[in-house]
Design a binder for these strands. Structure first.
Lengths: 188, 188
DNA sequence: TGTACATCAGTGAACGCGCGTTCACTGATGTAC
DNA sequence: TGTACATCAGTGAACGCGCGTTCACTGATGTAC
């Protein structure tokens, strides 16, 4: 082998990481095999030593990125209402709005996923489910109908972030973020 | 001329209408010039008698679709809180979820628009602004901070619809729609 | 009203170009003796 | 430990293919007399 098995694993990890960022920044159709491989420091031909096809890559990257976001979520230190508030404030921050490549894959890819293949959608659905569970836990028995609240909260932060990103006018964008942040203190 | 001026206007309107549906169903990258023209009953060459380029078409279609949605919004009969509730119930309905081609362009295209050109984003931003104004009016003086509420409500319904569409599991999808519908009665 | 001519909506072949994929090849790595 | 051989990660040229765009052409329409 031109490279050891360990090096192959590193290459694969590098491809997945770069693709995870590109995917969130440019959408499911936004990465080309050649560009991706060149960003990973290789030529395009080697791609097929790691993935069956481009579609297969997208599926794996989506699953990878969802699992990563999920792990970060469950690793957060602050619990209860304070933890939830902290999370919402980060989620609806300018920093998160302006850095989709490292941000929530749900907000970055939701409309793309709706048009994607079943494998991709299944990975996405699992991530949404885990997210809802985490939020539900934050409500605990503090509030009635915690799961219903969790789903609404998720909808509001995803919608708010997506709108803040799409909109052209910085003032409206900021207004959306701060409005949702503020109003959610009532439901949360 | 092979066709009269009136016929040209009809052709253009037909292209815009079909593109408006395809765009919402398949995303900003989802329509090809050849497919679009053939769906409009013509061959691809004639496209450039109506639009400068594909990108120019996308811009015009987005503006057209936003204006259309806006007109429908302002034409709704029921006013006040009842009108708002009625609208939310439609927005978060299975019918709307399953028919993006005739539904809200904001929810259908938000993440695509975030990556699109300035012209497209400007048209989108204008539409969002008008939507927020309409919602703000529905709150009127009934509630404090009506504009803040309007932006949060918009975020929640857009996010809820987008998630309900992306998710693979019909049970979760329906649960998202009904949760947001129910919880929004508190804020609205 | 009729005639001659210019206009231009729509046609369909042809064009580059980029993209996903294939494939023969290289040479370091892993393995068997 | 050393040698011979098979393996296979990565290379880079080449492939189809679809897509946006161009262009010479057509013939009905609009206009000028």
């Amino acid at each position: 082998m031109a490279r050891s098995q360990a090096e192959k694993a590193e290459s694969r990890a590098r491809i997945l990481e770069i693709a995870g960022a590109e995917l969130r920044a440019r959408g499911l159709d936004g990465i080309g095999v050649a560009d991706l491989m060149s960003a990973a420091g290789m030529t395009h031909g080697g791609f097929y030593k790691h993935f069956e096809s481009r579609e297969n890559l997208v599926e794996e990257v989506l699953a990878h990125v969802m699992a990563e976001a999920d792990a970060q979520l469950y690793a957060r230190e602050r619990k209860g209402r304070a933890g939830l508030m902290e999370y919402i404030d980060w989620y609806l921050s300018q920093e998160h709005r302006d850095g989709p490549e490292a941000g929530c894959p749900i907000a970055a890819l939701a409309t793309d996923v709706a048009r994607a293949g079943e494998g991709t959608r299944t990975a996405f659905t699992r991530g949404v489910g885990r997210f809802v569970d985490w939020l539900t836990d934050r409500f605990g028995s503090r509030r009635d109908r915690p799961r219903e609240r969790a789903m609404t909260l998720l909808s509001a932060i995803v919608g708010g972030l997506v709108l803040a990103r799409a909109v052209n006018d910085p003032k409206i964008s900021e207004e959306i973020l701060s409005s949702v942040r503020r109003q959610l203190r009532m439901i949360a």
